[in-house]
Computed example of a mutant assay.
Amino acid sequence: MLVHFYTRPGCHLCDDARMMLKLVQEDVPFQIEEHNIEEDDQLHEKYMLMIPVVEYQGEIIQYGNVDYVTLMEALEN
């Protein structure tokens, strides 16, 4: 299972979301592929106002404030 995590350096919400992903990862096995939106113009334009963004199977699970319960519900199925 692969989860895409869109972030940028210096983003405190991103740090919190990364921590939530790692907590969920302790209960549900999955890989995190992290993408720095500042390294890709298309990603930057798409997610600039939304980061952090957590995406699984082409669907955005959550963005902005990321919480454990929402991530857990989306990933345990």
Rank of each mutant, 00 (worst) to 15 (best):
Y47P: 09
T7C: 06
K22T: 07
G58M: 04
Y63R: 09
V28Y: 10
N36I: 01
E73R: 15
H4Y: 15
D40C: 02
M50D: 09
V69K: 10
E45F: 12
V24D: 05
R8D: 03
E33K: 10
Y6P: 11
L49N: 08
L49I: 15
L49H: 08
T7Q: 14
C14R: 05
F30W: 06
A17T: 01
V53N: 04
V66G: 07
D40E: 10
Q31S: 06
H35Q: 04
L71N: 08
R8P: 02
V54L: 14
V3D: 09
M20Q: 14
T70N: 14
V66N: 00
Q57S: 08
H35D: 00
E76T: 08
V53C: 08
Q25W: 04
E45G: 03
E38G: 05
M72N: 08
L21G: 03
D41W: 05
L49R: 11
Q25C: 01
E55W: 11
F5G: 15
M72W: 13
Q57N: 11
N65Y: 13
E34P: 07
E59K: 15
E45T: 12
P29G: 02
I60P: 02
F30I: 09
K46L: 10
G64Y: 04
T70G: 15
L43P: 00
H4S: 15
Q62Y: 02
F30L: 04
V69M: 09
I37T: 05
V69R: 09
Q31P: 00
L13G: 00
V3P: 06
E38C: 01
Y6D: 10
I60C: 03
R8Y: 02
Y68E: 07
D15Y: 01
G58L: 07
Q42M: 01
V3Y: 04
N36E: 05
M50S: 09
L2K: 05
V24G: 03
V24I: 10
D27C: 08
I37E: 02
T70E: 08
V53E: 03
Q25E: 03
L21M: 10
G58H: 04
N65W: 08
M19K: 15
H44F: 13
G58Q: 01
Y56V: 09
E26G: 01
V53T: 06
R18S: 13
K22P: 00
L23G: 01
V3G: 12
L43S: 03
E26L: 10
N77R: 15
H12Y: 07
L71S: 11
N36F: 04
I51A: 01
F5L: 15
L13M: 12
L71H: 12
D40H: 00
D67F: 11
E34Y: 00
V54C: 12
H44N: 09
Q42L: 12
